[in-house]
Design a protein around this nucleic acid. Structure first.
Length: 221
DNA sequence: ATCCCGAGGG
DNA sequence: CCCTCTGGAT
């Protein structure tokens, strides 16, 4: 078992080795882990990811077919009536703010990026509703640019694992980036999120059936 | 630090 | 009833 006392004494090299062992176990456990938002192009993924804030992917996928049919292009969002757009996305929560962001997102894309979703993090985060986490989801899943998507699951798990004690998402991202090669970042993000949803729940983690328990200080308690 | 906001689970 | 769900902007 790995205890918190062990983690406190762990060298950077030992931490890297333990983290990568855990990463391999997750890879074996979730070989099929992938983005669970339904989308057919970068614009759809960007909008779906904006909608996914504080909402399950399953619920986002319930509203996006009608939404994407009604608003096929960035220009359609840019010209959308807020009340009508809200009616499509109401059940995802935060619907007024999300509708406002998505209209601004469409306008930003039309005015500054020729109606196309940009391929860099710096450009993506200039768009309303798109923060670092959303930008990394788009890069990793629409453009095959490696990115760590530090959301609530990701942060909770890596702190429980003792990979970092940081709570600031950007610091968490940089800390985990040190532990894994770049090419693994996107898949690792998916696997952490899948594990968080299936076993390492926020409320009642199922350490008894967790394949990582032997290497996780939070399971030793 | 607080707000935005709806739906489902324990 | 409270907590949580792949956050972001003010």
């Amino acid at each position: 078992m790995t205890t918190w006392a062990d983690v406190a004494d762990e060298t950077p090299l030992a931490l890297t080795r333990r983290a990568r062992k855990m990463g391999r176990i997750l890879a074996d456990e979730y070989p099929e882990a992938h983005c669970e938002l339904d989308f057919a192009n970068p614009l759809q993924l960007t909008v779906a990811t904006v909608l996914s804030a504080q909402c399950t992917d399953k619920r986002v996928n319930m509203v996006t077919p009608a939404l994407f049919a009604r608003y096929p292009t960035a220009k359609d969002y840019a010209e959308a009536d807020p009340t009508e757009l809200e009616s499509y996305i109401r059940s995802t929560g935060f619907y007024r703010a999300k509708a406002r962001n998505i209209i601004g997102l469409g306008q930003g894309l039309v005015e500054r990026f020729g109606g196309q979703v940009p391929h860099t993090l710096d450009e993506l985060v200039t768009l309303p509703g798109v923060g670092r986490k959303t930008a990394n989801v788009v890069l990793g899943n629409a453009f095959d640019v490696p990115g760590l998507t530090v959301d609530t699951h990701f942060g909770r798990l890596v702190r429980r694992f003792g990979w970092t004690a940081e709570t600031d998402p950007v610091k968490v991202e940089f800390a985990v980036a040190e532990l894994f090669p770049r090419r693994d970042w996107t898949a690792l993000s998916h696997r952490l999120i899948w594990h968080g949803r299936r076993i390492c729940h926020a409320r009642k983690p199922e350490c008894g059936i967790c394949p990582l328990a032997r290497l996780c200080p939070s399971a030793a308690a």
